[in-house]
Amino acid sequence: MAPKSKVKEGEIWAIGGGKGGTGKTFITSSAGTYLARKGRQVVLVDMDIGGANLHTFFGISRPQKSLTSFFEMGASLGDLVVPTEMPNMSLITGDIHSMASDKITFSQKLKLFRQIMKLNAQTVLVDLGAGSHNNTLDTFLIADKMIVVLVPEVIAIENMYHFIKNSLFRKVKMTLKEYGFKEIVQHIWDRRQSYGIVNLKELIDYLRESFSYIGTILDHELSSFQIHLVLNMVRNNQDVQLGASIKSVMMKYLGIPIHYSGYVEYSDAVWKSVRERKPFMLNYLATGCAKEIEILTENLIKSADIDIPGVA
């Protein structure tokens, strides 16, 4: 894992969530646009390996520079930043040549993380793409704000649980490894039946209770493990309230806090623009979701929860 120490004051926001098609790229570019309009220096990084398309949201169809040069030619990340038409906002195009995620070497990964942390920006937004590959999880875990984008569907919820659970499992494993307890987590998990453990929370509780030293480490290291939830394509109040339910369940199921940052209502205008790959972000005010984007991004900045009538 990369060291947490930062050279710059900038914040890294990682946007993931497991399932494809939930609107991660849409949320990344919208929140980024809002921040840039607010005057923050923003760099968007497309880490959707195999499905990089963030550039198309800005009307760039044939990017001159992309992460491919980083992985294949050893280019430095800072040299791959290209400006967009939007003031204050630049972009690093993803690996458009579809290199498989597992071909990235460990040292490439560390170098990538180091350089992401050094990018000259106040906020770096990293679009993670779908899936729960270890490289994706590791990128998620280096972020200052871990954001998941969800749509109100069972499969998406299931994938999101999987994604968060795997992130937490990896975090616990890596943390304890750093403290010298190399294989203990996997060891106990593999024999969980004989320990009477059915889920990750019970594993963590077991570790805490059995080894007070580990308990202290986990208390310290997991205190920063907070997830920010954005619901996309909601159609009614019931969908909106799902966020509050997920918050409740995640605390009881994994013992981790979720901030329900906000939601974006389903709109044909957005759906059409995304499908047609229109660079609509520059006039996203016209799509009617500007207010929702503002609320959720402000909540992300403050690590706050959205205020929903009927839900405290």
């Binding site: 109100p152 069972v154 799902l242 339910s245 369940v249 009927g310 839900v311 405290a312």
Partner: peptide, 29 residues
Amino acid sequence: RDVHNSHLRLKKLYSGESIVLEPLGEEFT
């Protein structure tokens, strides 16, 4: 009012009425 609403919402959620609990299956007994 929030007390009533929260009670109702949580009751529904943990009665297994919600798609939020469904994917957890046996992990949430």
